[in-house]
């Protein structure tokens, strides 16, 4: 018997939340980081597709909170708590932060992937959310899908196959 699961898609610099049996997905992560915060017991999860490490980089008046690691994670946390998640049950998984292109020189711009990963982790640690697993770095794009029913994060790449973490 097959059942069709409802998949909620999250775009770039965006975030959303789901409750089992829904699953949540974001496609084509490169230097961006997909961070999932979930409550294993209540089976609630949120995903943010983070593009930049810090909102201090912003040169815009109105900030899109989902775009920056330091504003996205705290916002996602607030959304999950509002849905009834329990702060002490919250765990995190993350994927992305690749270096898609290799350049000589290696300016800060080129290191954006690793910088995004560092910023996301720093923020999760600051908020006392334990990181259960991660698949970060490398030079491959990733499409990720999280199922709050199983707490598994499925990661699909073009060149490195598929895995669950």
């Amino acid at each position: 018997m097959t059942s069709t699961l409802e998949v909620i898609k999250v775009g770039i610099a965006d975030m959303n939340t789901v409750k089992a049996p829904q699953i949540i997905r974001t496609s084509g992560l490169g230097s961006c980081v997909g961070v999932i915060i979930y409550d294993e017991i209540k089976k609630i999860a949120g995903l943010a597709h983070v593009m930049l490490p810090e909102s201090s980089l912003a040169r815009e008046q109105k900030i899109n909170k989902a775009k920056y690691a330091d504003t996205a994670i705290i916002e996602l946390l607030a959304l999950l708590l509002k849905m009834g998640a329990c702060k002490t049950n919250l765990r995190a998984k993350l994927a992305g932060g690749a270096q898609m292109f290799k350049f000589s020189g290696g300016s800060d711009l080129m290191r954006i992937g690793p910088r995004n990963v560092e910023a996301v982790k720093k923020e999760l640690i600051r908020l006392n959310i334990r990181i259960i697993s991660e698949d970060t770095g490398g030079s491959s794009g990733r499409t990720i899908e999280f199922n709050p029913e199983t707490s598994l994060l499925n990661i699909r790449t073009v060149n490195q196959g598929t895995k669950d973490i």
């Binding site: 490169g30 230097s31 593009m51 930049l52 912003a58 030079s139 491959s140 060149n159």
Partner: peptide, 27 residues
């Protein structure tokens, strides 16, 4: 031009890299 870099991968992963500068100013 800088030396061009090549990647065979998903559009999202490739194109988002070129949006880093822009994304600090706009969506």
């Amino acid at each position: 031009p800088s030396v061009p870099a090549l990647s065979i991968d998903m559009v999202g992963a490739i194109v988002s890299f070129g949006l880093v500068e822009l994304s600090q100013v706009s969506d």
